[in-house]
């Protein structure tokens, strides 16, 4: 299918550009971009639940934090290595999403939002409550010795950037493959018309649970990678803020598009970065961006582009 070739070419081109950026950009921006790529993986996961399956969660911070702490705690307490710790984070994100989904997916719409919000809040408070084990609000620094993957030192700039890029590329390829697969079609079907999907023989609960678990795996992987690459694990990553951020990225870039989360993360990150240069009122921009987006461009940038002609965009 030529459409398929064009789509893969577009995404490969993005990865190639990001690879080239490493040699062009000054260190400061390269580090930013590494951060953005990891956050984009988080947002991609959020998008699989929200953008494709229609599950508006306000609790993804707990999946992100689950991945981060499942990676960080064994490293901190038992000196586990970076590779297994990363894997542990990924599994933890998915397991957490599965457990929450089993309960929360009995509700829908507004109730689902509040239930996920409440679970995430309970998760955050739990991290604080066991502050002696988790480091609580202050968090802890991930031991440099553990921040190695396949012999590379992730605390130095180039390997860190490449690791972030590798994770991003893998996540994007996975996302692209998933949404173009028959299961991806069923996810969208749940978003568009749940009752019809049920009467085509799909169990809404199982489809949504599967989507949420995949989404949680993405969030967990991003959380673990974030802790590993930037060397810090903290309770602040479990706050409601980190549930809102991926939603903001996805809304800005375009819900239900593969590249939207990255585009949204990139733009929002630099919007905050630039505005915080001359004002401390960056919270205001987050709030204003949310309100303006939901008012005037609920489909986001890529969603609007897709509507205006580029219908092949996945």
């Amino acid at each position: 299918m030529s459409g398929g070739a064009r789509i893969w070419a577009l995404h490969l081109a993005l990865v190639a550009m990001l690879f080239a950026a490493l040699f062009v950009l000054p260190t400061y921006h390269a580090t930013n971009l590494a951060r953005i790529m990891v956050l984009a993986v988080f947002a991609m996961g959020y998008n699989l639940a929200f953008g494709y399956t229609g599950l508006l969660s306000l609790g993804h911070a707990m999946f992100f934090a689950a991945g981060m702490f499942a990676m960080g705690l064994p490293v901190w307490h038992w000196g586990l290595g970076g590779g297994p710790a990363l894997l542990l984070g990924l599994v933890a994100g998915g397991a957490m999403a599965g457990a929450v989904g089993l309960l929360a997916l009995r509700t829908a719409g507004v109730s689902f939002m509040i239930v996920t919000l409440m679970f995430a809040q309970a998760g955050y408070l739990t991290i604080l409550y066991f502050g002696q084990v988790t480091g609580g609000d202050e968090g802890f620094v991930v031991d440099a010795a553990a921040r190695r993957l396949f012999g590379f030192d992730l605390s130095s700039d180039v390997p860190r950037y490449l690791a972030a890029l590798a994770l991003f590329a893998a996540a994007m390829a996975g996302c692209l493959w998933l949404v173009r697969s028959p299961f991806g079609r069923v996810m969208v079907a749940m978003r568009e018309n749940e009752e019809r999907s049920r009467m085509l023989g799909y169990d809404p609960f199982r489809v949504k649970l599967a989507a949420l678990v995949i989404s949680g795996v993405y969030a967990g992987a991003a959380g673990a990678a974030y802790g590993l690459l930037f060397g810090y694990v903290g309770g602040s990553f479990a706050t409601i803020q980190y549930s809102i951020l991926p939603m903001l990225y996805v809304l800005l870039g375009g819900a239900g598009t593969v590249l939207g989360p990255f585009l949204g993360a990139l733009l929002m990150f630099y919007l905050i970065d630039i505005t915080s240069g001359f004002t401390s009122a960056w919270l205001f921009f987050v709030g204003a961006a949310l309100v303006l987006l939901i008012l005037f461009a609920p489909k986001g940038i890529l969603g609007t582009i897709r509507e205006r002609g580029a219908r092949w965009l996945p």
Binding site: V188, A189, E192, N193, E195, R196, M199
Partner: peptide, 11 residues
């Protein structure tokens, strides 16, 4: 098949 047409209009 539904009495009131039920398809995925945006797909």
């Amino acid at each position: 098949t539904f009495q009131i047409t039920s398809i995925y209009p945006r797909l």
